[in-house]
């Protein structure tokens, strides 16, 4: 427990800063308060969660970010893969149950949990690669203002950062005889969270290329018989789950769908 005290302290301080930002950052269109401003696409992400909760169905792609007043309506993120929003929906419902109209705050608090978990994973990456650096990394990430701000707002990014950190941690362990099975659900979850996950796909293949594996060959005498399998399976999973963002991106706009606009304007 003692060796984690810096991590806990960093998460506590970072968590408090994020809770302050969650409570004080306005959600309304072009709203400002106390030097803190809205962020232009949070409304669209909030509408996605609200739609899941209220309609119990995935939203249709109704608008484009290029459309006039897109940021005011907040209806241009419906093409996104749903996993992060499905995770936020229970938080939204809980917040609405505790205090009607506060679902957005509960969703933000859940985002903070994802952000703090991502910090813990990043610390473990640093500690694994260079023992002694983990605590420094935890503090740096906890106190980074931009990361704190973006990790507080409702979107699919904090959940993606957490998954991406877990994915990279798994990939970095591959040449060191680490387990490969977590790559499969992680790749699937990444693609069901954000289509940007495609940039992470080549990493397992690079991790097991001969020069890297060769460095650790004494610890893996049976190489290369089993090595291509994990990335291959990872690719299969990824291609399967990638169909979601692909289908969403290619779907024609359905302007007849009911836009899920928010009634909560500038606070």
């Amino acid at each position: 427990m003692n060796r984690f005290r810096h991590l806990f302290a960093a998460l506590l301080v970072g968590g408090l800063l994020r809770v302050l930002l969650a409570c004080q950052t306005p959600t309304g269109f072009e709203a400002f308060r106390g030097g803190l401003s809205w962020y232009n696409d949070e409304l669209a992400h909030l509408n996605y969660v609200r739609h899941l909760v209220e309609e119990r169905a995935f939203p249709e792609k109704v608008g484009s970010v290029k459309a006039p007043d897109a940021f005011r309506r907040g209806d241009f993120e419906y093409y996104q893969p749903p996993l992060a929003y499905l995770a936020q929906a229970p938080a939204w419902m809980l917040g609405e149950r505790i205090q009607p109209g506060m679902g957005w705050l509960a969703a933000r608090l859940l985002e903070i949990v994802f952000s703090l978990l991502a910090i813990a994973v990043a610390r473990s990456i640093a500690h694994r690669l260079a023992p002694g650096t983990g605590d420094a990394v935890a503090w740096m990430l906890a106190l980074h203002p931009g990361l704190a701000y973006q990790g507080t707002l409702v979107s699919n990014d904090p959940f993606f950062w957490l998954l991406a950190a877990l994915y990279l941690r798994t990939v970095l362990e591959l040449p060191r005889n680490g387990p490969s099975w977590p790559l499969f659900p992680l790749a699937a979850a990444l693609f069901l969270t954000k289509s940007s996950a495609v940039v992470l796909l080549p990493l397992p293949f690079l991790a097991v290329t001969p020069p890297l594996v060769d460095d650790f060959r004494p610890r893996r005498p049976c190489w290369p018989g089993w090595r291509p399998r994990p990335p291959g399976t990872c690719a299969t999973w990824s291609c399967t789950t990638a169909s979601w963002p692909w289908r969403r991106a290619m779907a024609p706009p359905t302007w007849s769908a009911t836009p899920c606009t928010t009634s909560r304007s500038s606070r």
Partner: peptide, 20 residues
């Protein structure tokens, strides 16, 4: 920020055991 884990890993390797 998607690249943060990679930046973190690069930083950790670069600063070595005494990152103060």
């Amino acid at each position: 920020f998607h690249l943060l884990p990679a930046f973190t890993a690069l930083w950790a390797i670069s600063v070595g055991p005494r990152p103060t």
